[in-house]
Amino acid sequence: MWFYIVRRFNLFVLTVAVLYFLVFLMINAMPGELATNISGHVNPSVEQHEQLVQQYQLDKNWFNQYISFINQRIHGDFGLSFTTAQPIFDEMLKVLPATIELCFYALLVALCLGLPMGILGAVRYRKFSDHTVLGISLIGYSIPVFWLAMLAIMYFGLKLQWLPVAGRLNLLYQVDAITGFTFIDILLSDIENKRLALRDAFSHLLMPALTLALLPTTVVARIMRTAMLEELNANYIKASQARGLSPATIIFRHALPNAIQPVLAQVSLQLSTILTSAMVIEVIFSWPGIGNWLMDAIYQRDYPVISAGILVCAGFIILVSVLSDIFLIATTPQRRSAVYGSS
């Protein structure tokens, strides 16, 4: 077990190192002064420039530059933003929770809908419900997220006026960002009508989260269906049927626990697609998250912000996939033994 974790951790470190190297190359390739691009100081004074050269070892060879680049970034120094001249790290801390919140709820919806759909499809294999599940997931898979988002805005936002079309919370509510997560912040704040504020936050969240959830829901449903089908055909299921156990026991006590672990691990690999569509959704719904922030940065050619965004998003995805891998191993005795066997 520990051996395995260490191995995964090595992989993590190596992948992140490669990621940093690519971003480092990118920064070098950007037009303009290297010291400016890497640190975000526009028009530094001579002393400042001197200091930056020191900091990033720009007078040494590329390897030293790379190492000190990693060093700066790991210690949370992502430089300044061109547009606001604020430390990028602080800005990121402001926008990151919004994205995490959006993705979290979307993933939650995806799991809550997708898992039962997948189970249903597998249990009623090739029956009407199965075809329905497959049909729905095919449709859901083919609908472009941005198109659905705009339709939703047009219909629920503008025509019916049920839901707000932009932002996270009505400006009426003066809630300080303590954690950055709206619901928690509202609960922590000392405003009056908290319940109204919560409702408002919820109505703001509803459309973006649901549209974002569509794609992962269909993916989860399909992965779950396949995994469950495989388990249902396994020998031990036949054996428990032969022992006369009830279908409910067989499905929920035996097949499901075996099927769901690989599914959860595979789903966390979907996080990269979720994050990508989250950026689109954020732009459409003016959700103040990292996607919106990055988009602005791209429009403004804010190179330090762009590179920081790439580092953080990609690093996050790598981290999650490593963690989910470890989670998978830790919870599946069968697999653990396979790992022992091979090592």
Partner: peptide, 13 residues
């Protein structure tokens, strides 16, 4: 009684 005993038991239980 099944032919492949170890696969006839739930590996996760």
């Amino acid at each position: 009684v099944f032919q492949e005993p170890s696969s006839s038991l739930d590996p996760n239980d």
